Structures are given as structure tokens and as C-alpha cells.
Simulated assay, not measured.
Amino acid sequence: MENMHILFWLIKDISWCMVWKPLGLLMILPTLGIAVVICWRTRTIKSELAHNLAIVFWITANSYWMISEFMGFDTLLIGHTIEGKHLAIVPFLIGLLILAYYYLVQKPREENQEQVSTL
């Protein structure tokens, strides 16, 4: 399933690069859908879940950015200097925050628990 996920992701991004709008938009669903399924399957392994959730948010941000370009609102000003494509920063940051939490909080806890259990 992970290999198929990569194939769909590559097709989506190639479609974006080549401005093949229908195929690019169509590939969002299987790419994101498989990423969510992978998260569900790894939900009991905290390290895997954190990284797979970050991927879900990465694909979400990436897909939003592609849509903004395809639909022509990527350069539309939303604020003083914020363009439509800049809203992709929200899911990118969510993914980054998930990984930051894992590496700064969860992983040290796990390592501490391992040290305590070996004593």
C-alpha cells in the first residue's frame, strides 16, 4: 500500500508540474486516502503515527497549493501580503508541530520509560 501511495503522489505532482488539471485533481483523493489508511494502520505505534500524520498534512498542504494554482487564486491577495497559496502554510505547520511534539515530548518520555523499566 505504501508503494502505491508513492505512485499516486508522484502522478499527482507530475500532473501539477505539467498542468494536467483533471488528473492532478483526481489524484488527490487516492493519495490522501491511502495516507489516512496508513495512519490508521500505524495508530498504535506513536513514532510511525506522528510521521504518517505529518505526511497527511504535507499532502493536504501540497494539494491545496496545487488547487490554488489550478483555480487561479494562488496569487490572489487575502491580506496585506498574504496570497491564496500562502494558506498552505497552515497544514504544513500542523505537520511540523506534530513532529515537534513527537521529538520534543513523546520520544523523550518513551526513552525515559525505557530507562526506568531497565533499572
Score class of each variant (00 low, 15 high):
M1C: 10
E2K: 15
N3F: 14
N3K: 15
M4Y: 06
M4L: 14
I6L: 12
K12Y: 07
D13V: 08
W16Q: 08
C17D: 05
C17L: 15
C17Q: 09
M18T: 11
V19Y: 13
W20Y: 13
K21Q: 15
K21A: 14
P22G: 14
P22M: 05
L26I: 13
L26H: 04
M27V: 00
M27R: 04
M27Y: 03
L29R: 01
P30R: 07
L32S: 03
G33E: 07
I34C: 01
I34M: 02
A35C: 11
A35L: 09
V37H: 07
V37L: 13
I45F: 08
I45G: 03
I45L: 02
K46W: 06
A50W: 01
H51Y: 07
H51K: 08
I55P: 00
F57I: 10
W58P: 02
W65A: 00
W65S: 00
W65G: 03
M66W: 00
E69N: 13
F70Q: 00
F70C: 05
M71K: 08
M71Q: 08
F73G: 03
D74W: 02
H80G: 11
I89S: 07
V90W: 09
F92H: 07
F92K: 06
L93D: 01
I94K: 09
L96G: 14
Y101H: 10
Y102H: 11
Y102K: 04
Y103Q: 15
Y103K: 11
L104Q: 08
Q106D: 13
K107D: 09
E110T: 09
E111S: 11
N112H: 15
N112T: 10
E114D: 13
V116G: 00
S117A: 15
L119G: 12
